[in-house]
Amino acid sequence: MFANACSIAREFTFPIIISHRTSNGKCSAGIGTFVVINEDGWFITAFHIMEQLNKLGSANGEFKALLQKRLAIENDTSLKKHVKIQQLNSQKIPPDSITDYSVWLGWQGLAIEENFFAIPNCDIAVGKLKNFDKSKVKTYPKFKNPNDPMEQGTSLCKLGFPFHSIEPTFDEQKGFILPPGSLPIPIFPIDGIYTRTVDIENNGIKPYPLMFIETSTPGLRGQSGGPTFDVNGTIWAIQSQTHHLKLGFGDNQKNSKEVEHLKNQYLNVGWGTHSITITSFLKEINVSFQTH
């Protein structure tokens, strides 16, 4: 059903790999997804991915500040040796301090411009790519026109980069090295149907509705920021989060091993930012896009 739509969506769906190293030398990486919106290099993803990048930046800033403090103590000749040791001990570097971090966006040299736009409540972020080569993207996405009918029960598919792990190494000269086998990242679709619309409290924040689309299947780890599209490859939502709905079986039964097992059954559903919120937001920030 989604074979054609997946071949369209693969053209504009890309991985975002965020690597970091802690002061105890451990390196790890997280994978998310983004969608290139137009040939000017604008892209859309989940806000929590950009937030993760910002958190790493702040943690790295704290690490650098701590290093400066320690250096100042070490260089202070007026301090007695035992006082110096005491002060250095009070400014120990935690083993999980972020010493280095880096983002990789699918092509060598591609980077994110410093300013980006976001609606944190709706977990949506829009930014622009530096060094973007428009010839690399053959097809740009079309977003679902929210004025057209969006029927409950419509088949939708989510695309992204789950079930893959990358364990980078670190070199002082080369930075993070993604080891052989890291790329290409297998892209993974999962289908479901449009179940409900989730209304986010607006409180006058925006002059347009803030909404999520719920689908009957989970958004998988690594699919955050990826497209949720129909059989034509038209984007209905950008994947944000997964909710675990309790099925409630066995709630009124006596406790036993079987009942306990029944009580812990869930339906995992995906939430993605609704096309009405996305298209209104893109208009607000003057980013051109196509609708269908």
Partner: peptide
Amino acid sequence: NGNSKTTVV
């Protein structure tokens, strides 16, 4: 974009 870079093999 980070204080470091990423290299792919």
